[in-house]
Design a protein around this nucleic acid. Structure first.
Lengths: 93, 93
DNA sequence: TAAACTAGTTTATGTTGTAAACTAAATTGT
DNA sequence: ACAATTTAGTTTACAACATAAACTAGTTTA
């Protein structure tokens, strides 16, 4: 009973595991695509991950449009490793 | 975005993965111990797993006391295998 | 025979997840 | 020029969920 509750949620786990896959910075829209989520849900979950310092969010403008980009922090990376470890123990895989 | 939502919850996953480990029938109290959950929570989650036909619940009396025992169904076993597969894809582990 | 214990279930509460509705600005069509 | 549409998100309202406290029902013990 020790799975990181922040990571033990489908969308947040999808975000973090995608960012962990060597992605430096991923855009909001890239995350929409890979996670197949809605914008509202993604926005909310990104904020939660940022609040926990699992990801860093950078906002800028590109071609006059707002652009939100995210990357994993060290904290987030470690949390994911830890989560995976616990999961493996639990499922013994 | 296709993790089985019934299994993607800590207590239910703990129950099912424990039952998958070659356990034939596990008692309510055994489940309390291995999952370190409360009785109320366990009772609720067992019902949900039973409703989905992931587990079978058998009630009888032992030494005058009620005894609740559970085992995994084939449906439950398959659901777990599938869940693990999806998870591995997602986390690529 | 009252108190304490066993083995659960029900429910009340707060927490969470999610999509619909909204904001704000840029672009396009007429 | 200005209305309609599109881009890029955020807010929030509602539904679903998880959980522990309170409860039920019976048993054992002192």
């Amino acid at each position: 009973m020790k799975l990181d509750t922040l990571l033990h949620q489908e969308l947040r786990l999808a975000i973090v595991s995608f960012l962990a896959n060597d992605i430096e910075w991923a855009s909001f829209n890239a995350l929409i695509e890979v996670t197949e989520s809605t914008k509202g849900n993604l926005s909310v979950q990104l904020k939660k991950l940022e609040a926990a310092d699992y990801i860093k969010i950078k906002k800028r403008f590109k071609n006059n449009y707002p652009l939100t980009e995210c990357r994993l922090t060290e904290t987030g990376k470690e949390a994911l490793q830890n989560y995976i470890q616990e999961l493996r123990k639990m499922l013994n895989i």
